[in-house]
Simulated assay, not measured.
Amino acid sequence: MILDRFRVSGKVAVVTGSGRGIGAAAAVALAEAGADVVVSSRTEADLAAVAERIVATGRKAHVVPADLSEPAAAAGLATAAVEAFGRLDIVVNNVGGTYPRPLLESTAEFLEEAFRFNVATAHALTTAAAPAMLEAGGGAVVNISSNMGRIAGRGFAAYGTAKAALAHYTRLAAFDLAPKIRVNAIAVGSVTTSALDLVTGNPEIRERMESATPLRRIGDPEDVAAAILFLASPAGAYVTGKVLEVDGGLQAPNLDLGLPDL
């Protein structure tokens, strides 16, 4: 059956930033599809709750509290997976993010921080995971980029530049790691995570965002988790070096920060 191609039974996955939001949804989805999962973020209580959901599916969870803004901490998750489960097959580089800031207030240091958190961490874990994946016969990497890496909006110079870099890093890494390791990315639109709480909690702003989105709603973490499962599973076996847009059809930002002309 075609649904069997979405199974990842017997595989081991690492999901960064998996205490809540997209990362948590991805970790649970992979477990439901048959994988044991290493979950990691800063807050141990959040991870424990996600681990309970994974165990409820019949799979195993390994919790690693860590500050994943540091590339070395992200890289260490590959070793943690092998030590806990004996192999590593799937990596979801979900951790990242940068707050909006006007261009002239975005220092070089702010840009470097955005690049480290969104790109260097993904590179560190991917390169650390590759030997274990090759030993297991192959694997899949899914990077979480953003629609702001391909469309323009005021206030997103650092974040958008970093996410655009992650998208192209995906294409380049896919060439280097083919044919045994597939590398893809998802350009995510507005999704109901804690990062959007300040705006989606305001009914007026939320209604404007939904009206500006062709599908007329804000995305759910599970919308992205389903795409992650496709790219990580045999269902996506002939896909590498691609950026899948999961953004409700956006061709322009659906959130105006109201930054004035200079």
Rank of each mutant, 00 (worst) to 15 (best):
A187N: 10
V91M: 02
I228L: 12
S18V: 02
L68Q: 08
E245Q: 11
A225Y: 02
G189S: 12
G137Y: 14
A164M: 07
L177D: 04
G153R: 05
A80F: 06
A232N: 11
S146A: 12
V82Q: 07
A24L: 03
R171F: 01
F175I: 14
A226N: 03
N143F: 09
E222M: 08
R206W: 09
R182W: 06
T127M: 15
A45I: 04
E113I: 05
A49G: 10
P71H: 05
A235G: 15
I144A: 11
M133C: 12
A128C: 14
E222W: 06
A33G: 06
L177N: 07
E113W: 03
E52A: 15
A61N: 07
V183L: 08
T57V: 13
D223S: 04
E210S: 13
F6C: 00
G17D: 03
V82F: 04
I181D: 10
Y159N: 03
N118S: 06
V141W: 00
F230W: 15
A124L: 08
E204D: 15
T161A: 15
L88C: 06
D261V: 09
G189Q: 05
A45N: 10
G155W: 03
V8H: 10
R154C: 05
S211T: 15
A132S: 11
S41W: 01
G17F: 11
S190G: 02
N254L: 09
K163F: 01
A120P: 02
Y169W: 13
A75F: 08
A13S: 08
A122P: 07
A225R: 00
P71W: 06
V119P: 11
E113Q: 14
Y169E: 07
N147P: 00
K11G: 00
V38F: 00
R5G: 01
N94K: 11
L88N: 04
P234C: 05
T161K: 09
G258Q: 11
M133N: 07
R150I: 10
A158L: 12
G241V: 05
L259R: 02
T107E: 13
A26Q: 01
N184S: 14
T107L: 14
L215G: 04
N254R: 05
A132F: 12
N93R: 11
A73Y: 06
L196W: 12
